[in-house]
């Protein structure tokens, strides 16, 4: 690896950190603007002014906002997200199991969805404008067009109620063995796959079709290569950057956008956790989850940027 790549990669990572910092400011400021007061929320409407004042003193609510922000950020940097107001539990430990669950579900969906989308995209290009292409595009678009909850309930109806192959409720805990865990996430992972498939497939198809206009594709054709080999060997490597970008966006969605699916399948992940605590107006939890989601988004996009940089032979092998 040569220096221009290292420089570009370092630049991206640095930019990501700056962005994350900016997001943390926004999240903190946003929750400050919300009406109401944490002490009031904890003690309820009937609290005496003295009790409120005491609690405010105790929670440091009388400090200026920037100082509270610094305390908050300092805590997070040391793994301390504070305690949830509604339950009094440590946020970091509640989140860690749920984050694990969410990542597990997302990983299961991604392992199926990403290769499937790319392969379907390649096949669609091979038979472009023909029946196979239209069939793939049509099915993928249809699956995306249905709302997630609809797909979720159809899956439950068919596989949990009618055939009774998979459980309709995907509740897992720390003690659940791996295979059972896997069985539990089959239906939610399928629902997620169906949701993200079309976007990735269509983008793969479009990115490769764009490359197929190039003169070097003609060169490959005139060497006598088979159509699918041309797409795989000569077109796909040059379409990696846009494909990786859209894949990463969808991976981010799998992690931060799964609220509906988690609720339907009663899966104990981050989304459900967030929804619960928004309902309870538990500001520290919302802040923590928001920051984690932002970090996931930014990290995955950095990965996509780095992949695009590394995939470019001009940057990998400078003159």
């Amino acid at each position: 690896m040569s220096s221009p790549i290292l420089r570009l990669v370092a630049q991206r990572i640095l930019l990501g950190l700056v962005l994350l910092f900016a997001v943390s400011v926004l999240i903190f400021a946003g929750t400050q603007i919300l009406p109401g007061d944490v002490a009031q929320a904890i003690l309820g409407q009937s609290a005496t002014p003295e009790a409120l004042a005491n609690l405010r003193e105790q929670l440091g609510l009388n400090d200026p906002a920037w100082l509270r922000y610094v305390h908050w950020l300092w805590g997070i940097l040391h793994g301390d997200f504070g305690t949830a107001q509604s339950s009094g539990l440590d946020i970091a430990s509640s989140i860690s199991t749920r984050l694990k669950n969410t990542l597990f579900l997302a990983a299961c969906a991604a392992i199926v969805a990403v290769p499937l989308a790319v392969i379907l995209g390649l096949i669609a290009v091979r038979y472009r404008d023909g029946f196979v292409d239209k069939l793939i595009s049509g099915l993928a678009l249809a699956s995306t067009s249905f709302p997630e909850f609809f797909i979720g309930y159809v899956l439950i109806f068919v596989f949990a109620v009618h055939w009774q192959i998979f459980p309709s409720i995907s509740t897992v805990d720390d003690s659940t063995p791996f295979l059972e865990r896997l069985q539990a996430v089959v239906l939610p992972a399928t629902a997620l796959t169906l949701v993200v498939l079309a976007h990735m497939m269509r983008m793969t198809r479009a990115a490769i079709l764009n490359v197929m206009q190039s003169a070097y594709i003609e060169t490959a054709e005139l060497k006598g290569l088979k159509p699918f080999d041309i797409i795989r060997k000569h077109a796909f490597p040059n379409a990696i950057a846009p494909v990786v970008n859209v894949v990463m966006l969808n991976l981010a969605y799998l992690i931060v956008g799964v609220v509906v699916v988690e609720v339907i399948f009663v899966y104990p992940g981050m989304g459900q956790y967030l929804v619960d605590h928004v309902a309870k107006r538990d500001v520290p939890v919302v802040q923590a989850v928001g920051l984690i989601f932002a970090a996931v988004y930014i990290t995955l996009n950095i990965v996509a940027d780095i992949a695009a940089i590394v995939a470019n032979p001009r940057l990998r092998h400078p003159k």
């Binding site: 003169a215 070097y216 003609e218 060169t219 490597p237 040059n238 032979p313």
Partner: peptide, 11 residues
């Protein structure tokens, strides 16, 4: 081809 620069696969 006329333009070898375009006819070679950059990857």
């Amino acid at each position: 081809a006329q333009s070898a620069a375009a006819a070679f696969n950059p990857a």
